[in-house]
């Protein structure tokens, strides 16, 4: 079961919208919206947050991401006062809720644990693979990006999920391929040259798989 994610927003529609967006890239992750006040106004609701934590908890931990200041305060207070904390742990993050939320969801979809989901949401490397000792095999290849839309959020998410399945540390044009935010930040366009590098036991296989994905070929 994946880590669950709760979006705490002042607006019910913002929270629900992020769930829609993230669900497209992370269909099996429990994504729960906790937006707006109990009477549907603008604000955050302690009770909604508490209920959302229970709904998102599948045993692997829960990450809460807030939008503006008091959403984070409400989330932290709710976590402090929980009668029963999620067995897999619970964390509250103050990161950009859309970018961080989508990155967290993609990491959770790829099976990352709570710590790695937190790192992904913070724009850090989600991978805990060793950073490449000199003795482990490495591989590298360069391909031309086939997607006519460029490497936008959805294919970038597919790339991050793909890389998570291999035991290797992978970079795409130097950017850590376990970080959705870093891959999207490359802003790669159709027709650009993309260098895929990997180090680790699965280096050759992951470079083949990633270059196939980017070049629009079947692996």
């Amino acid at each position: 079961m994946p880590v669950g994610i709760v979006f705490v927003s002042h607006s019910a529609r913002i929270a629900a919208g992020i769930v829609d967006l993230a669900a497209q890239m992370a269909p099996s992750v429990p994504l729960v919206a906790a937006g707006g006040t109990d009477d549907g106004g603008i604000g955050t609701s302690y009770d909604r947050v508490v209920a959302a934590i229970a709904e998102a908890d599948r045993g692997q931990g829960v990450l809460l991401i807030g939008d503006l200041g008091s959403a984070v305060l409400t989330a932290e207070t709710a976590v402090d006062l929980l009668d029963e904390s999620p067995a897999g742990g619970v964390r509250v993050l103050d990161v950009p809720i859309v970018e961080g939320g989508v990155a967290a969801a993609v990491a959770a979809e790829s099976g990352a644990d709570l710590d790695a989901v937190v790192r992904a949401a913070s724009g850090e490397s989600a991978s805990d693979a060793p950073s490449g000792s000199g003795s482990s095999p490495s591989a590298e290849t360069t391909v031309v990006l086939a997607d006519p839309e460029g490497l936008h959020a959805r294919p970038a998410a597919a790339l991050v999920r793909l890389v998570a399945g291999f035991d290797a540390r992978v970079t795409v044009n130097g950017a850590d391929a376990s970080s959705l935010l870093r891959i999207i930040a490359l802003g790669l366009r159709h027709g650009e040259q993309v260098t895929v590098h990997a180090q680790g036991d699965h280096a050759g296989q992951v470079v083949d798989a990633v270059s196939a994905l980017l070049a629009g070929r079947r692996a």
Binding site: T37, T44, Y46, E76, T77, L81
Partner: peptide, 21 residues
Amino acid sequence: ATTLISTVGGASGPLLGTAYL
């Protein structure tokens, strides 16, 4: 504390609620 946290909303609910708690 618990009542203020769940009814006041905004930053004041969690902050004041925490003070009373």
